[in-house]
Design a protein around this nucleic acid. Sequence first.
DNA 1: GAAACATTTGAGAAACTATTCAAATGAACA
DNA 2: TGTTCATTTGAATAGTTTCTCAAATGTTTC
Lengths: 119, 119
Amino acid sequence: MEDKIYACHPHIVNERKKVLPDQHNIDAVAGFFRVISDPTRVRILWALDQGELCVGDLSVLLDMTVSAISHQLKMLKDTGLVKARRDGKHMIYSLDDEHVRAVFETAVEHLEHLHKEKE
Amino acid sequence: MEDKIYACHPHIVNERKKVLPDQHNIDAVAGFFRVISDPTRVRILWALDQGELCVGDLSVLLDMTVSAISHQLKMLKDTGLVKARRDGKHMIYSLDDEHVRAVFETAVEHLEHLHKEKE
DNA sequence: GAAACATTTGAGAAACTATTCAAATGAACA
DNA sequence: TGTTCATTTGAATAGTTTCTCAAATGTTTC
């Protein structure tokens, strides 16, 4: 922390301090976005958006090791974005939440919006 | 890559390969979410959601060094989420995009949804 | 023009993340 | 029951990321 701390608008800062969410809620929001901020996880979610797949399928589809896929699936499952069921020897994964789709759509809209502004 | 690669449903995998976006678009989506996946950046965006603030204000409000705030503001500016204008000695930052708000709202809904399911 | 103020920048340290590799688990089938 | 198949797990590594500290930049004011 620096020697001298100052705010140009102390009254506004004090006002705004009251409406800032606590760290726990901030971390929850940031944590959710972190899950979908990795290209591999985005590809998995995109693939599963079309319908369920097993780990081996995903491995071939995304051209990655089964282990790498499995590690990421575990994270996606722990955070409630995908779910799994067993089918004989296979574990079949699918999206667990309609909201994932909604978040994606909003993001894609955002990106399209940014793209348009550059023209 | 492992010795033996197999898909339980090769026909489905081939089908789905066609609809997967290319790496460039995947990276764009993941990259956008990565920007809002850090607690500090979320707090900055939340604070600016109420209205514009200068760097020193944000530093006091979030109890972090001016330098740390400035580094994050640069990233948020480079990715088009905030914009800056000069006011005398101060740089005043504000949200640059309505879509940021929309993405946040969807995420919050998602988190509430997950929370409900646990009851 | 010099001094003070507000912010930016770059290099470096500490913490975190994604993947790999090897070994372990769990289900099916002979 | 032992073997094979499909997936999971843990440790290690390479690559990022965030923050700090010190120095640099740009603006106002004297």
